[in-house]
């Protein structure tokens, strides 16, 4: 029940923000209504799924500790740059992906920045938060308004104007390049294809490519075909986007909402106290004391009564078991 309530509240808050930001729907573009409605459902879905996720013992504890570490005044004073640095390296430039594979890092960066650019343009547009107005009917001098307040004036024929009006085309090119790499990898590479599932692994890539290609075709239609087929393409593009937004909280895309937990985990692990817990048996460092204590509490929540084992390093666990087998099960093999 709680996840549903959190979802409904989030959806209502977004609806209110759309209403206020579009000046009482005055700036709301009704042609884009399906996108805006889908984003309200998306808000519900993300909040619902997120609440379900953090209700499991492991995630719940890490969620609390992570936010505690992120908002801790002591941490901020001790390492003021830790949080912004981690946000940039983990969430923005995804350095950890480079440690997995450079090619995958590059492809993922293309998708990431492409999607971010597209989201930064389309969500405010469909919510009626961004509007473009011109004093003369046909331009070329335009003013960009946010929430009805004029922010920047530009010439539609200038480079800035071109970039502003073709931002989504640029995003589509980035996403197509990245997603195509991953799609080919999923078909050819056995590391990727081992245990892959169509709905979980392939549908997200296909969705990104379909959205981007239909989006580019809209531009192609208006530039080269004098709008030929535009309405059909617009419906196709809209259907692809709406279905993807609705799918987002329940499949692979949910990692977008989960990944920031890496920052919380890292902050909690390495900046909170810094004291290291060592293996009870051999003295090798295991993890930070705060983290091991947190894990033991999680294990007790889950009724995994062997939580004391968390204070023994993996190798000593194996040696203990092997030596016990050799002593009591098959003596002296």
């Amino acid at each position: 029940m709680r996840p549903v309530l959190v979802g409904i509240v989030t959806a209502l808050v977004l609806s209110a923000a759309i209403f206020l930001g579009s000046r009482g729907l005055h700036n709301f573009d009704s042609a884009l209504a399906p996108y805006a409605i889908a984003s309200v459902f998306l808000a519900f879905g993300i909040a619902y799924r997120y609440t379900v996720w953090i209700s499991s013992p492991g995630a719940r504890r890490l969620f609390r500790k992570g936010w505690g570490a992120a908002l801790s005044w002591q941490n901020l004073r001790r390492t003021p740059t830790a949080l912004p640095r981690m946000i940039a390296t983990y969430l923005g430039f995804q350095k950890f992906l480079g440690a997995r594979s450079r090619a995958r890092w590059a492809a993922h960066q293309l998708i990431f920045w492409g999607c971010l650019l597209a989201a930064a343009i389309t969500f405010p547009l469909t919510w009626g938060w961004f509007t473009f107005t011109a004093n003369t009917g046909a331009g070329p001098q335009y003013t960009m308004n946010i929430w009805g307040f004029p922010v920047v004036g530009f010439n539609a024929l200038s480079v800035l104007g071109w970039l502003l009006f073709h931002g989504l085309d640029i995003a589509a090119v980035l996403v197509i390049a990245g997603a195509t790499y991953f799609l080919i990898r999923r078909m050819r590479d056995r590391e990727a294809s081992t245990g892959q599932r169509f709905g979980y692994d392939l549908v997200p890539l296909l969705a990104l490519i379909i959205i981007s290609v239909t989006g580019l075709l809209l531009t192609f239609s208006s530039v080269a075909l004098h709008g030929g087929g535009y309405e059909f393409l617009a419906v196709l593009h809209m259907a692809a986007v709406v279905l993807t937004l609705l799918y987002l909280p329940f499949g692979k895309f949910f990692h977008i909402a989960q990944r920031p937990a890496a920052v919380g985990m890292q902050l909690f692990k390495y900046t909170e106290h810094g004291e290291i817990r060592r293996c009870r048996n051999c003295g090798e460092p295991i993890d930070t004391t705060a983290y091991v204590d947190n894990l033991r509490a999680t294990m007790r929540d889950l009724k995994l009564d062997f939580d004391a084992m968390a204070e023994v390093c993996p190798r000593c666990k194996r040696l203990r078991r092997g030596q016990a087998y050799r002593t009591t099960v098959k003596p002296g093999f």
Binding site: G58, L62, Y90, F96, L97, A99, R100, K252, H255, Q258, R259, A261, A262, M265, K269, I286, D287, Y291, V292, L295, T298, M299, L304, F306, D307, M309, A310, C313, P314, R315, C316, K317, R318, R321
Partner: peptide, 28 residues
């Protein structure tokens, strides 16, 4: 799952058999 693992190491320490490995740089 490569898209989900945040490299926290919970599994490494919780496994009573000493099985999982973790690459802290790759967060995997």
């Amino acid at each position: 799952d490569k898209s989900r693992c945040i490299g926290c190491g919970n599994c490494v320490s919780a496994c009573p058999m000493g099985v999982p490995k973790i690459d802290l740089e790759a967060k995997l």
